[in-house]
Design a protein around this nucleic acid. Structure first.
Lengths: 197, 197
DNA sequence: GTACTAACTGATTACTCAGTCAGTTTTATA
DNA sequence: TATAAAACTGACTGAGTAATCAGTTAGTAC
């Protein structure tokens, strides 16, 4: 195992636990125990539990922005048209939500949005994350309208709808009542019909 | 205020609090205080906090099933074709999610699905609720394929996708980052494109 | 009125948790 | 090696928690 600072260990374990069990049911003692440090050490690095949570959200933001920047820079050249770019973006989102389940679990937790309502920093991070997710779709749709592969629609509104749809599918997956991964193919077909000329 | 049994009062207040603050952050003392009864009274009617929660979920199930039965019986006659029926069902879902926010908040809480994984009754109620929501969409789609208003697609899978989409929109609404109600019109148009012939 | 039951309660228990604090260890620097 | 700062810790506190229980009240049948 790579050596890392205790502060970093706290952040990473808190990410796992907050995502898995939620804010309230995760105890600072538990984070400390898993990190192999004294309980009080967490409070040396993070003044309160809430501050730790916001730090976790910030790290998710950094991660999401990195992933998307890496995969969608020079996107104008990479795709034949806007329609194909949008479908690629949806695929990428599904793939990322699978490989980084924790991030998206955290974003969906009720507490995250409750906190965002009263905590500036949390709200800012959340807004930046969502803006990044939406912008990719929006850009693809605008491109598609330009190049004729996408019908006349509001890129912004439709981007929000597609985000909601993809997010809804992931939620379904987490709920375990239905096998959402069996829907990925159908989802892409549906998206295509939804936006194509 | 209408007279009601204390048991009923407990159930209704618990519904509000569980929906609003989640399971963990709602204390039995708080429910009792709001109901104007002694804390121990709750444990006379419901053995544990978990049992109370399951009772709340059950009451949501009863509510959802009633609402949908009332609005979608004789649905074969009420709509010109399957496509229009599906759009009506989507509209109805959006409307219900607005007028009965608590129900859908409860269904989305992480804890609800955690509990469903280990509690038979909770799982059964949840499954019945979702099955009801999906069946309406599925029936409309199957009708639409029959009457030619809907393209060839898997009614079941597409019903799940549409449910996920609608649910995602409502989630967006609750997150308060975006005004999802401004998307309702666009959502219906998107659905139409998605499934029409 | 009496007897019986269901509904209800106040006081208490055993426990968990976020956060504090005084003091110790580690690290960096001179 | 001496000194100061940063990192870390064990022991503790006070507030809040679900659940229990012995006992009280309200309702009903006769």
């Amino acid at each position: 195992m790579a050596k890392m600072s205790k502060k970093q260990a706290i952040l990473e374990l808190a990410t796992v636990l907050f995502a898995d069990k939620g804010f309230t049911k995760t105890s600072m003692t538990e984070v400390a125990k898993l990190a192999g440090i004294a309980g009080a050490t967490i409070f040396y690095h993070y003044k309160t539990k809430e501050e730790l949570f916001v730090a976790v959200i910030e790290s998710v933001k950094v991660g999401v922005l990195q992933e998307y920047c890496a995969s969608f820079k020079d996107c104008n050249e990479k795709f034949p048209n806007g329609l194909e770019m949008l479908l690629a973006a949806v695929s990428f989102h599904l793939h990322l939500a699978d490989s980084k389940k924790q991030w998206f679990l955290l974003l969906r937790h009720h507490f995250t949005h409750e906190l965002a309502a009263v905590n500036r920093d949390c709200r800012r991070h959340l807004a930046e994350i969502y803006e990044c997710l939406i912008k990719i779709f929006e850009k693809a749709l605008a491109m598609g309208i330009e190049d004729g592969s996408v019908r006349q629609l509001s890129p912004r509104k439709t981007a929000l709808i597609i985000l909601a749809m993809v997010d809804g599918i992931e939620q379904l997956e987490n709920n375990r009542l239905y096998d959402a991964s069996a829907l990925y193919g159908e989802l892409l077909v549906s998206c295509r019909h939804m936006i194509q000329q």
